[in-house]
Design a protein around this nucleic acid. Structure first.
Length: 390
DNA sequence: TAGGCCATCTGGTCCT
DNA sequence: AGGACCAGATGGCCTA
């Protein structure tokens, strides 16, 4: 199967429009990937996509509003007479530097020699008048306010980046460095998917995402991706990370029972369709469960094959009700292994203690309502998923 | 209490 | 000259 321009655009559009590095990188990456597929007809689509910065206008304006808020905040700080922690000593130093700003008023009576030592080069020290001290204070305060605004903007961009990487938790925010690492891994993983043109391998994909991440973040990502870490590792240990398709696992509500999934309509054979109509389902099952295959109806499968999650956020699905966020939680249960192997596999990635950073892998599956997979995916995701479906 | 993370201040450097 | 950017220093907060 060939990859269309919409596939490339779908992947690329999944990247935040805020983080400058991502903005700069992804369009270029998309063009490069398009060429990898040796289909020049895709280039117009990709180039059109490269103008996506326009789509982020609302986000930009929001950022500007934030910036204005920050500026106002800074002004308030100044109005309060708070020097923002600027010590009097620091101000004296600034004032000393600032002396050179003022023409005239040079220190009189300085000879070419200061005692035995030659006179210092550079501008002469100037007397600090009260007016000059005040000017230096104002200048320093303005610089501080600008710096605060700059850092707030940077943090705002990071927040936006957090929302589009495969794992997002309101309460357990990724640190800055972990966010950047995960974003890098995410981009890399997407690129690899495009490059290979193959259905991504579950375990390898998660490993790619978690590469270089701290233990707690690794656990968090595993939880966000709804992977029971032990079983995920069991699978990894069992067959070297190969994903065997729908018969290799079953889906269970975990750890919370979903009322909707318990309902008859969700249990019925048409649940997949009903969930699709709610915006769930097709991505994951088409991607990883092979809904078109006979195995789809394997007796081993009992639950609805349409979790609102997927191996990565890129293929996750729109959830259009707050309840959905609260209700659905799954993990993957692979075929059982002897506990010793499970332990060995568990230790492989999560450490021998199984607990580190206070987040045990088994407990790393956060309540779903606390986590967000990606919302509001463009319709082209269906197309993209169809690609993996083949 | 130590360590991690963060916000802020600060001064230096570079650019326009 | 002024602003943007950067990195070091510092102190606060949180968690194990």
């Amino acid at each position: 199967m060939s990859i269309t321009g919409s596939h490339v655009m779908a992947l690329a559009s999944d990247v935040p429009t805020i983080w400058p590095g991502i903005i700069a990188e992804l369009p270029r990456r998309a063009v490069m990937l398009t060429r990898l597929f040796s289909d020049p007809s895709l280039l117009p689509d990709v180039q059109k996509y490269a103008g996506w910065a326009d789509d982020s206008e609302s986000e930009d304006s929001k950022t500007k509003d934030d910036e204005q808020d920050h500026c106002r905040l800074g002004e308030e700080d100044l109005e309060d007479g708070d020097l923002g922690g600027v010590s009097s000593r620091a101000h004296s130093e600034i004032a000393a530097e600032d002396e050179e700003d003022d023409d005239g008023e040079e220190e009189d009576g300085e000879d070419d020699m200061e005692g035995d030592r030659p006179k210092k080069r550079g501008p002469k020290k100037r007397k600090m008048t009260p007016a000059r001290v005040e000017r230096s204070k104002v200048r320093r305060q303005k610089a501080n306010a600008r710096e605060r605004t700059r850092m707030h903007d940077l943090n705002s961009a990071l927040d936006n980046l957090r929302k589009v990487v495969p794992c997002y938790s309101k309460t357990q925010k990724l640190s800055k460095i972990e966010t950047l690492r995960l974003a890098k891994n995410y981009i890399w993983a997407l690129s690899e998917i495009l490059r290979s043109g193959k259905r991504p391998d579950l375990v390898a994909y998660v490993q790619t995402l978690c590469k270089g991440l701290s233990q707690p973040t690794t656990n968090l990502v595993a939880g966000c991706l709804q992977l029971n870490s032990r079983n995920f590792l069991t699978e990894q240990c069992q067959d070297g990370g190969r994903f065997h398709g729908p018969n290799s696992f079953s889906m269970h509500p975990y750890p919370y029972q979903c009322p909707r999934l318990s309902s008859p309509q969700c249990q019925s054979g048409s649940n997949s369709h009903s969930l699709r109509t709610h915006g769930y389902g097709s991505a994951y099952d088409s991607l990883y469960t092979g809904s078109a295959s006979p195995e789809y109806n394997s007796p081993e499968y009992e639950g609805p094959l349409s979790p609102p999650v997927c191996i990565n956020g890129n293929f996750s699905l729109k959830q259009d009700s707050p309840d959905a966020e609260k209700s659905y939680h799954y993990s993957m249960h692979y075929s059982a292994l002897p506990s010793s192997r499970q332990t060995a596999a568990h230790n492989l990635v999560f450490g021998s203690s199984g607990v580190r950073g206070g987040v045990h892998s088994e407990n790393s599956v956060l309540p779903y309502h606390d986590m967000h997979l990606h919302h509001d995916r463009p319709p082209m995701y269906e197309e993209l998923n169809a690609f993996f479906h083949n």
